[in-house]
Computed example of a mutant assay.
Amino acid sequence: MLKNFNWKDESGFTLVEMLIVLLVVSVLLLLTIPNIVKQSKSINDKGCDAFITMVQGQAQAYQLENNKVPSLQDLLAGGYLKGEQKKCPNGKDVQIDSSGKVTEVR
């Protein structure tokens, strides 16, 4: 047997309650997104420091094996760096000077 539905007994969210929840979520997103973007830049800068340290170690290994200061192309051709690893995670280039020191190009 089917019972008649009584709309007054139905429980659920009203439009006003849904709008309040949407407002709270929107405010939370507006507060957190700028902080996430700022942290992303910090993470990329730390990743660049780690990348420079890694390239410095590979340049020293190349120098020990070949008795000369490498260029980035030498490291790539010799298999010391994989693929096209010429840039930091923040998008800046790195360079190796004549003494073998690896620095970020500013």
Rank of each mutant, 00 (worst) to 15 (best):
V16S: 13
G47E: 01
E10K: 06
D93P: 01
V37K: 15
N35H: 09
V69E: 02
Q60G: 04
N35E: 11
V27R: 04
K86I: 15
Q39M: 06
V27D: 02
L15Q: 11
C88D: 05
V37R: 12
G47P: 01
S99K: 14
T103S: 15
K68S: 15
E10M: 07
T103C: 01
P70E: 06
G83F: 05
Q60A: 14
T32E: 07
Q56T: 11
D97M: 07
Q85F: 08
Q73W: 01
Q58W: 04
V37N: 13
L72D: 05
Q73Y: 03
S40I: 06
N67S: 15
V69G: 05
L31R: 05
L22R: 01
D9L: 15
Q73D: 11
N66C: 03
Q73L: 01
P70K: 06
Q39D: 10
V102G: 02
S26K: 08
K101H: 13
D97V: 09
A50N: 02
W7N: 04
L23K: 06
K41Q: 14
P34F: 12
M1K: 10
V69A: 05
A59V: 11
T14G: 13
K92D: 01
V25N: 04
V24K: 00
Q63Y: 09
L64V: 12
Q58N: 03
T32L: 14
Y80S: 02
P70D: 07
V25G: 08
G78R: 02
L31A: 14
I52P: 02
D45V: 00
E65W: 04
S98D: 11
G47Q: 13
G79P: 04
K8N: 08
Q85S: 15
K8W: 02
K46W: 01
S11P: 00
K86A: 12
N67R: 03
F13Y: 13
Q58E: 15
Q95G: 09
V21K: 07
A50E: 00
G78F: 07
S98P: 01
N90R: 06
V24R: 07
K92Y: 00
G91T: 00
